[in-house]
Structures are given as structure tokens and as C-alpha cells.
Amino acid sequence: MIELSHVVKKFGGRTAVDDLSFTVPRGEIFGLLGHNGAGKSTAIGMMLGQVWPTSGEVKVCGRDIQSQRSEALTRVGAIFEAPVFYDYLSGERNLQILSTYTAPTSKARIREVVEWVGLTGREQSKVRTYSHGMRSRLALAQALLPKPELLILDEPSDGLDPEGIHEMRQTILRLQRELGLTILLSSHLLNEVEQLCTRIAVLQKGKKVFEGNVADVKATRGKVALKTNNFAEAEKILRAQNLITATAEEKFITLAEGRSTAEIAQALVSAGLAVEGLWQHEQTVEDFYMNLIKPPPLQKN
């Protein structure tokens, strides 16, 4: 549904996106991660034809966004952080206005979408009376109006309270489950990305530094958490028996090839150390992300 091929965007002398390539296949929830200014919003802007790439090719729904923008965006919905509307008009009027930029939309379709997002009864109220959560729902409603196949969500949970974030997360899952949408999600909330996305790409200073499956990110083969009364002594024993290859933070050990946790427990107990806990460690997307983007340690001299 989305194809970015060697895309570069420069603003003056500053490179905002540098040789970015990735593909989002149909039906996937794809996460775009990166710190502020990493180039996520610029990349999304290029997917929607709001920002023109300096070089490279962007295809949405199989069409080039620069030469066939209108055709490419016919079945695309988008939500941006801190949804903004014409506050002085009603929610329904806002939807009517925005729908005319795509195609004629019937009142029945607007009612259907309003009901889907749970705004029925408030659609005639002026948007200035809406809470942040209601604005998010209205943003979702406007994105769903053209019956999209692809939904681009740029920080959709930005500014929401925990309840709102939970609701948004459930809605995204519902969108994929019930409507079978392909979703590109840009977010700072790493646990949100972990729970929603099947694949992620991480941007740093405009460059893609990682692309892969969330399941692969979480599966950290051989990393085991060890809780014992003397970690240093345990490390010495385990290294002496070639059971581990590395330790970290005085709580993690990395098993040597072909070794199991049972062997670790046996070795430590035989040496008279108390094993208070021993379990396979599953890395979170947050751990992975923080390790990925952390600056290299300063070298002396």
C-alpha cells in the first residue's frame, strides 16, 4: 500500500529525510518510530503529497504521489496529532466540508461514520464544545468518510488522557479487525506501538536505522534474567563453566550456544548460591528502541 524508495527531503541545507526506503503491505499495522525531528512527520507529509520529496519515489496505493496524487489518495484517510477543525462550526458541518474534498458523500454515510466513532447525539454541537477525546473521534470520523483502505495516523494519541489512549488503541485494532484497513502509525508511545504494530521502522536524524517485525524485536534469544544473592560470584562460576557469554546490568546473563536455564540453575545451586529467580527475558520495544538510538559511549582520547 505504501512504497518509499530512496526518498530524500532537504529543507535548505538541512536533510530531514535521508535515503528512506520501506514498504507497507496491505493489511499490516506498520509503526514509524523516532524522536522529535527524526523525520517521521516529513515522511508522512511526503506520503500524502503535502511535502515534495527532493529525490526518490513515493507510491501510495500503487500510484506515484507526485504525478498521480488525486488517484493515490482516493482511498486514504489521515489523522494528525492534536486534531484541528473549524471550531465555530458543528461536527457534522466539519465532516460535510472535509468530505467534499474527496468525493460526494451522502448524509447517510456521514451518520454511519458518526455512529461508528460514537459521536451520535453530539454531531450538531459546535466543535469548540468538544473535549480532546471527542475531537479525536471526529478526526477518526473524517478519516473514515472516504471508506479508506489505508489509514495514516500521525501521533493519534497525542494529548489524550490514559483512558483516551486506551480507547484510541482499541479503535485502531477494531479498524483493522472490522474494516481490514492497512494502517501506518507514527507514535512516541512505544508500548502502544508494541501492542498494535506487526512491523516497525525506526528513524534517527532522517535515516532509517531499523526495520523489522515486532515479534523479532521482542525475541531476544539467550538473554536470561538472573536474581541471586551474589551476582558477581555467579558470573564467575558460570563463565568458568562456559555456560554464559555475557552479563548486563548485574541482572542479565546471555546463555552460551546450546545451554539451557536448567544447567544454569544446577551450576549455581551446586556452587551453594541461592537462585531467587531465573527466567527468559523478553525485550520490550522500548528497551530495543532505547538501545538502538542511545549515543555511543564517549571514547577517552
Binding site: 500524502l48 503529497g49 503535502q50 496524487r69 488525486s70 488517484e71 493515490a72 489518495l73 482516493t74 486514504v76 484517510g77 489521515a78 494528525f80 492534536a82 486534531p83 484541528v84 477543525f85 473549524y86 472535509l98 474534498y101 474527496t102 473524517q142 472516504p146 495514516i152
Partner: peptide, 18 residues
């Protein structure tokens, strides 16, 4: 300035027509 333009331009209307 308000940000509504970005929402409009996520739709297939051409800039010239807008």
C-alpha cells in the same frame, strides 16, 4: 496556521483546484 490545511491536503483535491 490553524492546521486545517494539512487535513484538507490529506485528501485527493488538487492544490490548484483548492
Amino acid at each position: 496556521e490553524d492546521g486545517t490545511l494539512r487535513m484538507i491536503l490529506s485528501r485527493p483535491i488538487s492544490r490548484a483546484r483548492l
